[in-house]
Amino acid sequence: MTREEFDAAVAKHGRRVFTLAVYLLGDREEAEDVTQEVLIRLWRRGHEVASEKIGSWLVRVTRNACVDAFRHNDSGIRAMTDSVARWPSDLSTGMPGPEGLANASQLSGRILGALRELSEPHRSVVILREIEGLSYLEIAEALEMPLSSVRVTLHRGRRHLREELRGVRDHVEAC
């Protein structure tokens, strides 16, 4: 892989890699470390990957690196109730109205917490589909899953999120 090809790949896919790491790990510093490791691996092994497969390869490597980071830290699933401050600060952008903003921020924080409670591969699939906007086919290629499995995994992931958040929703509406 030439330097120009590498820089083009970083420019094109760097955002996807970092975003996935942020939402999988829930920690910006760890996400930066994982992103750096993944992109260096791209430089060293990118010549082994077909250019049209670089995107899916990077998603796969990023997810694996995040799973390894979880195992290494042995922290299990972190509670998100008090960790919203550790997330990037622009989570509240785009929320409507001051009251809605307060409730939406609380709900979005709970959504992130519930997202971290999801098991794999449900969490990865929900992040890739709902937040990063990948198609079913792109997710299937990246995670090496059949297309039908991607659909089923996404549906189950969203159902678990709904069930987890149902209590939060009732609390918000009661306030």
Binding site: G14, F18, L39, S108, E130
Partner: peptide
């Protein structure tokens, strides 16, 4: 639908410059 809407409105992030610079230095 509200949950989906919130998820789809979640921000995406560009890797910080120091990470990109570190990658270029390593490369």
């Amino acid at each position: 639908l509200e949950i989906r809407s919130q998820l789809q409105a979640m921000p995406v992030f560009d890797p910080p410059a120091r990470v990109v610079n570190a990658v270029h230095d390593a490369a």
